[in-house]
């Protein structure tokens, strides 16, 4: 069958127009990071006044800014995200395996509690969460607020339900005979998990890591409450908010800060585009 050229050319044009629209804000950010504030306000969509020298000036003004503190914020965000993801994958896998392979009243109840908790919006727990963390922190003398371990702890708690939900679904599909064979060969239960089951979980762990990672990296409300707007430790979104709050309408600096904030995610997306898009879909369908 011969392809009709006409309709496809029209579709192509539509696709390009939509792509221009979805990418336009990114284009604006990049373009205007090369300009002075006066040029941005005068003509935001043209290249008038854009130069690499100005980009350098904007970058150094933003990176060295005490409210933004890009490298510190970037480091904090990276540490929080990576540690939370590793712990969630490990603890989530362990918990999901136990829940899946023990059909007792307890394991069913724990599983149901996890599922039910997924509908709880953060708003309903956030206020009491802060006071609980403050009290627990005071009581055991470990800083839970304004500290990285505290926020990692919170992400393990909040991400746990979804992680267990997705992992349980996957473990159900792994034949139990594999574990029996390992047990007959003299493998202990913990050995069975770490040597047999955990390596098999790799594809689904990629999925939960992408889902949790997108959420943890971009999350604003939880870190802003736990770390404070002007606390000593800030994640990238909190730093952006604090920075914008202190420089009302200084678009040259704000857009350069935005560029720095979105760059890590875009680089990761370019590298792992397929995995991210597949992971997001798989997480939603399950």
């Amino acid at each position: 069958m011969k392809m009709r050229k006409g309709p496809f050319a029209i579709l192509m044009i539509i696709a390009i127009i939509i792509a221009v629209y979805t990418l336009f804000p990114f284009f604006m950010v990049v373009l205007n990071s090369f300009k002075k504030a006066s040029n941005i306000v005068a003509s935001p969509v043209t290249t008038a006044g854009a130069s690499f020298g100005q980009l350098k000036a904007n970058l150094s003004a933003v990176v060295g800014n005490s409210n933004f503190n890009f490298w510190a914020a970037f480091g904090t965000s990276a540490v929080i995200t990576v540690v939370s993801l590793v712990l969630l994958a490990l603890f989530g896998g362990m918990a999901a395996w136990v829940i899946c392979r023990n059909k007792t009243k307890w394991s069913t109840m724990i599983y149901m509690t996890f599922i039910a908790s997924m509908i709880i919006p953060f708003q309903v727990v956030m206020l009491a969460l802060i006071s609980t963390f403050r009290d627990v922190g005071n009581f055991i003398d470990i800083k839970m607020l304004q500290s990285i371990p505290g926020i990692v702890f919170a992400y393990c708690g909040f991400g746990g339900a979804m992680t267990v939900f997705i992992l349980t679904g996957f473990i159900k599909g792994i034949p139990y005979e594999l574990e029996e064979a390992a047990a007959i060969d003299g493998c202990s239960p913990e050995g069975t998990f770490f040597r047999v089951i955990f390596p098999l979980l790799k594809p689904v762990i990629v999925t939960v890591t992408i889902l949790n990672g997108m959420w943890i990296w971009n999350d604003y409300l939880l870190p802003s409450l736990m770390l404070g707007q002007n606390g000593p430790v800030k994640t990238l979104p909190v730093a952006v908010q604090a920075f914008v709050g202190s420089y009302v309408k200084q678009w040259d600096l704000i857009l350069t800060a935005a560029l720095l904030a979105i760059l890590p995610m875009i680089i990761i997306f370019i590298v792992a585009q397929k995995q991210i898009m597949n992971g997001m879909v798989e997480g939603a369908i399950k």
Binding site: G92, A95, T113, G157
Partner: peptide, 18 residues
């Protein structure tokens, strides 16, 4: 031991505050 870490964080961050 396997259930403990996740369940503990879940209880402290979700169940108790809820």
């Amino acid at each position: 031991i396997f259930l403990f870490p996740l369940l503990f964080t879940f209880i402290v961050t979700v169940v108790i505050p809820m």
